[in-house]
Each structure stands twice: as structure tokens, then as C-alpha cells.
Amino acid sequence: MRTYFILALLVLSNSISAQTPEEKLKALNIVLPAPSSPVANYVKFVKTGNLIFLSGHGPAKADGSYITGKLGRDLSIEEGYAAARQTGISLLSTLKAAIGDLSKVKRIVKVLGMVNGTEIFVDQPKVINGFSDLMVAVFADKGRHARSAVGMASLPMNMAVEIEMVVEVED
């Protein structure tokens, strides 16, 4: 019985790891929205060589507004985590527009997570984990990345978080 159980786990893990990033998004009930337009004089991404540099994105809601407020005053760590996850969805939308197929991702290389927090808020890593956990769920080991999670006195439009990332892609 134990051998059967181990064999079943191996088959299950192989089928999960064989899923494409797009299949994983579907399994997570995530539909990527159309990428938004830049809000100022910049572009959403720049490709140089096999690297894509994605500009800072915020936690956009379906109506085009953002999840706003300061962590430690207006929002809980859990709400910040959800905002960081939502920001990850926005970044994936832009990334897909940039490369066409998320299966081309070789690795999420570097992430800068900025948290709009009070001067005494110190749980920025717990908030940005909402983004990091999503990248690992979608890309498995390719989603593990170097990361900075820092606090900010304010962010544009009072967004709860802003995240930028660098992604290595196949040529």
C-alpha cells in the first residue's frame, strides 16, 4: 500500500510540474487582465538581450482603481499580502504581453517590493510574500527570485504596494 501511495505522489507531482504557467494560472482561477497603460512618461517594460525589466506595478482592481492605504494603519498584513498578490497578477499580464507565452520564462531574477507603510511598520517581507508565493505557484523553481522588500513613506496614488521585477526569458 505504501509503495502505491508513493507512486501516486510521484505521478501527481510530475503532472503538476508538467503544467505550463498558463495552466497553473487557470488552476488557480486567475484570469490575466489586459495590461494597463502607463500613467506617466515611461514604458511598462524594456527588453534587452534575454532580460525583461518590468516597471513598477501596483495592485490594480478590475475597475482600474488601486488597493490603497498604509500598512500598519489602514491595512493589515493579510490585506497587504493580497495587494502584493494582485500586483503580481498585473505584472504577469504585462509580462505575457511582452513575450507572448509565459512558458518562455527561464527565471524570475530580481524583485523590488515597495510597501506603503507607517514609520513603525516592519513586516514588509510578509506583505511582499503575496507576490513571491504567486510567482512560485506559477513558475515553480523558476519563480524563486532575489528580492528586496522595503518600506516607503508614500507611493503613487497611495497604492498599498508597488513591485518591479527583472525576468530572464528564452530567446
Rank of each mutant, 00 (worst) to 15 (best):
V109D: 15
K110E: 15
V111W: 06
V111T: 12
L112Q: 15
L112Y: 13
L112K: 15
G113E: 06
G113R: 07
G113F: 08
G113W: 09
G113D: 07
M114N: 15
M114T: 11
M114Q: 15
V115P: 10
N116E: 09
N116H: 14
N116V: 09
N116M: 07
G117R: 09
T118Q: 10
T118G: 11
I120G: 03
I120L: 07
F121K: 05
V122F: 11
V122T: 15
V122R: 14
D123Y: 10
D123T: 02
D123A: 13
D123E: 13
Q124I: 01
Q124E: 15
Q124D: 11
P125S: 03
P125Y: 02
K126H: 07
K126V: 00
V127M: 06
V127Q: 07
V127E: 07
I128V: 12
I128C: 02
I128R: 00
N129T: 03
N129R: 08
N129K: 10
N129M: 06
G130H: 04
G130K: 04
G130D: 03
G130Y: 07
F131W: 02
F131S: 05
F131H: 02
F131C: 04
F131A: 07
S132N: 08
S132H: 11
S132E: 11
L134P: 05
M135L: 06
M135T: 03
A137D: 15
A137W: 00
V138W: 01
F139P: 01
F139K: 06
A140I: 10
K142N: 12
G143A: 06
G143V: 03
R144N: 12
R144C: 03
R144L: 12
H145I: 02
H145N: 13
H145L: 11
A146E: 14
A146W: 08
R147Y: 13
R147S: 13
R147P: 00
S148H: 05
A149S: 14
A149M: 05
A149W: 00
A149I: 00
A149R: 01
V150D: 14
V150C: 05
V150G: 01
M152H: 04
M152A: 14
A153I: 07
A153W: 02
S154I: 03
S154M: 11
S154N: 14
S154Y: 12
S154G: 12
L155K: 08
P156D: 09
P156R: 05
M157L: 12
M157F: 10
N158Q: 10
N158K: 10
M159E: 14
M159W: 01
M159T: 13
A160E: 07
A160I: 11
A160S: 15
V161N: 11
V161K: 11
V161S: 10
V161C: 11
V161Y: 10
E162H: 08
E162C: 13
I163M: 04
